[in-house]
Design a protein around this nucleic acid. Structure first.
Lengths: 193, 193
DNA sequence: GTTTGCATGTTAACGCTGTTAACGTTAACG
DNA sequence: CGTTAACGTTAACAGCGTTAACATGCAAAC
């Protein structure tokens, strides 16, 4: 037996999954639940509170995606992150493309490990720095750079800037990540060592 | 003497500049013009058409920003792009953070030089590849990588993920761009040459 | 066993949104 | 002088989030 609150976010998630867009209203949710819109306000303060609950579920799912890898390398995480975005465009939209009142802020919240998803990537980054795969650098900032690049591409895709061909986009994404790895500049001669 | 159509987009831009957000309605625009909302429909098919006109003005302004540099290097363009985003968060929002019906699509439209702003950056990229500053690589894709990274960061900022301190963000942005330049991976030994 | 109280719902309404249909006014032109 | 186009109006509809006031049923308390 699930609580009413959970039922509401489940329905809200479902509606979002469909027409990804903002086309999910209190009246929609209530309708699907066979209830009048105002009943929802017994359980959530306002619409944004419902969305916050959906976002929380979204992040839980994202973490599940990210930790699904047996080999949790950074490149693997990038792949899983893309999988999540393509599987759940509606969720991605409200999680990363809309202003909310409870967003985690860089750097405080991320430095303090208040974002499990960011932390998963960051841990992998730190590991690969130790392993000599990634340059030794500020791990927090490096994670941000990697995440931003991925988010930039993905958000452009979900806004329709790459057409609808997800496979084509996957390939663009992969090669762009590789480019970030290697850098766009011509490497300077290494002085010594 | 400006046309009614121009007056409308000017007012719409102004409203957007204020509370950046979606808080610009047909009724707002009409009110500022001293006219009833329905009058706007003489000049534009619907709200999205008004927005499209605002977006067009936005891109013109962006190109102006980008070409304001005396030394149109890639790093310079990144700087100007950030300036534009910080000066015009409302414009940035509707230009890059919302789905529209007339978006340029990658790669077709960009390969065909239908985006003056993208092209400005791309030209700089090509130049720096010739100058031996950037790696010789696919210029279109490289430009996309660079743009995506910048857009990812900026969109996070405009959605409040970095607090409100623009100066702090500027510094994060700059160092992240540098990281993209140099690459995050440990460079492989160059085989010869 | 009645009563109290809480959880949960409803109806009616307010003010906001984009948008339409139908109707009016004004100026220009042949 | 009559026609036409440009421009604007009023009234209305359907949708939105949200509030206030009112109902109901069930569980615990006296």
């Amino acid at each position: 037996m699930v609580s009413k609150k959970e039922e509401i976010v489940t329905v809200a998630r479902g509606l979002h999954a469909r027409h990804g867009d903002a086309g999910v209203s209190m009246r929609n949710i209530a309708g699907k639940l066979g209830v009048t819109p105002t009943a929802l306000y017994r359980h959530y303060r306002d619409k944004e509170a419902v969305m916050a609950a959906v976002v929380a579920e979204g992040f839980a799912l994202l973490v599940e995606y990210l930790t699904r890898s047996s080999t949790p390398g950074v490149l693997d995480f990038m792949q899983r992150f893309l999988d999540f975005a393509l599987d759940e465009p509606g969720l991605y939209d409200i999680m990363f493309l809309r202003a909310r009142r409870d967003v985690r802020r860089y750097p405080e919240d991320f430095a303090a490990h208040r974002s499990p998803s960011f932390d998963a990537l960051r841990t992998a980054v730190e590991q690969e720095m130790r392993d000599g795969k990634l340059r030794r650098d500020n791990a927090l900032e490096t994670t941000l750079t990697i995440w931003s690049h991925a988010h930039g591409l993905i958000s452009m895709f979900t806004l329709g800037r790459f057409g609808a061909d997800a496979e084509a986009f996957r390939s663009i994404y992969r090669s762009s990540v590789r480019r970030l790895y290697r850098g766009v500049a011509v490497p300077k001669k290494r002085s010594h060592r």
